[in-house]
Every structure is written in C-alpha cells, then in structure tokens.
Amino acid sequence: MITVRSARLDEADILADIGLRAWEKAMIPVGETGTMVEYARRAFVNFTHTSWITISVVEISGDPVGWASREELDENITDLWVDPLHQGKGLGKLLLAEMEAEIEHQGFTQARMQTHALNAEAVGFFEKHGYAVHWLTVVYNPKLDRDVQTIGLSKQLSVEKETVSYGQEF
C-alpha cells in the first residue's frame, strides 16, 4: 500500500539517506558527486533533523521511499527525492500532487521550484507535470570553485478569483 504522510523526527536519518541516494543519481551526469558527497550528506542530515516538520513522506507498506518539502512553507518546493530503487513507479507524481495541494490550500496560486539546469531528469519530470521554465541563472559556487547553472520552473495551480463588491455589475 502506498501512502503519503507527514514526516517524523525519528526517521530523519532514513530520509537523509534517501535524499542522498537520489541526489547522487541525479548529479552523476552533471559531475557534481565526487567533490560534493560529504557536503551533501551533512546537508541532508541537517535538513531532515531540523526541518522534518516541513517534509511529506511517500511510503510503501510503511517503509519511507521518498520525500518532498517546502522549506519555508510557501509556494516553493525545495526538495523532491525518491529512492532510485523506487523511481518510475509514480511516487514522485504523488509527492508533487501533495505539495501542490498544500500550496493551493494555503492560498498560493502558483507552485515554484528550482534545480540544477543540467539535471535533465528533474527538469523533464516537472515539465511533464505542467511546469514551465521561467529563468536561468549562473552563480559562482565557492565549494565547487566554479559557476553553476540553476533553472527556475513554475506552474499555475489556480486563478485568483475576482471579488465583487456590493452594487458592482458583472
């Protein structure tokens, strides 16, 4: 049985491991893994331990296999990671739908996200689910000692409703 639920602090290490495995798979074609693995591991552990309240988990038969987050609880999806062993089963789509529902429930009309511009798999996934590229930037990354391309995508979730005041014709 597949379910999506809120994360628990006691599974933070499991979620960090899932995130790292998915990150490594995504970054191998980009060439980021060699110099960044230990930094990424620490970042995932820190994030899942300190921001677990912002994480939604997808599980199969009670075992976490992926997670997504909106770090600031706004319209920005900051993380979406599915264990490579479970990719291609529609779990990312379930997590994305959960994030979008939360965004819309909070009154935002658009979902946004950003990723490494060369992460073709992530860009393709989001485009397949209705996201469009809105910006591309290049920023110097001191840890890599080079410029990194980042791409921003967004999707219109709903249209803001016009308010009609008393006596106004429509």
Rank of each mutant, 00 (worst) to 15 (best):
E75L: 07
N119F: 09
S51F: 14
F125N: 01
E121D: 13
S51K: 13
D74Y: 08
A111G: 10
V65K: 05
K128Y: 07
E59H: 14
K93E: 14
N46K: 10
E98K: 13
V65T: 00
K128N: 06
L80V: 11
I103A: 11
N76M: 03
E100V: 00
W81P: 03
V58K: 06
Y140S: 08
L118Y: 05
R70H: 13
D74F: 00
L95D: 07
A111L: 03
V82R: 00
P64S: 15
T48E: 06
Q110A: 03
V65S: 00
K89I: 04
V58L: 12
V139S: 12
G62K: 13
F44D: 14
L94R: 03
Q87H: 03
F126C: 09
L95W: 11
G130P: 09
T54N: 07
A120I: 06
I60T: 05
D79A: 15
E59P: 07
P84R: 06
K128A: 15
I55S: 06
A97S: 14
A120G: 10
H116N: 09
E127F: 11
A97Q: 12
V82A: 00
T48P: 13
G124V: 11
A117Q: 06
G107Y: 04
L91S: 05
F44Q: 12
K128P: 03
L73W: 12
G88H: 07
A97C: 11
Q87M: 10
E71P: 04
G88S: 10
R70I: 01
Q110P: 01
S51N: 15
L95M: 12
V139L: 14
F47Q: 10
V133D: 03
H86F: 07
H105F: 06
A132K: 02
L118H: 13
N76S: 15
G88T: 01
M113A: 09
R70P: 04
G124E: 14
S56W: 15
L118I: 02
L136P: 07
V65R: 00
D74S: 13
Q87Y: 08
L73P: 09
S61L: 05
S69D: 10
L118Q: 00
V138F: 06
G130I: 12
L85R: 05
S51G: 12
L95Y: 07
D83S: 01
S56H: 11
M99F: 09
L91D: 03
Q110W: 07
F47D: 09
K128I: 02
V45H: 15
H129N: 12
M99C: 05
T78K: 13
A122Y: 00
D79P: 03
V138Y: 04
V45C: 11
E71Q: 15
W67A: 04
I53N: 08
L91C: 05
Q110N: 01
S51L: 14
T115A: 04
T115M: 09
Q87N: 10
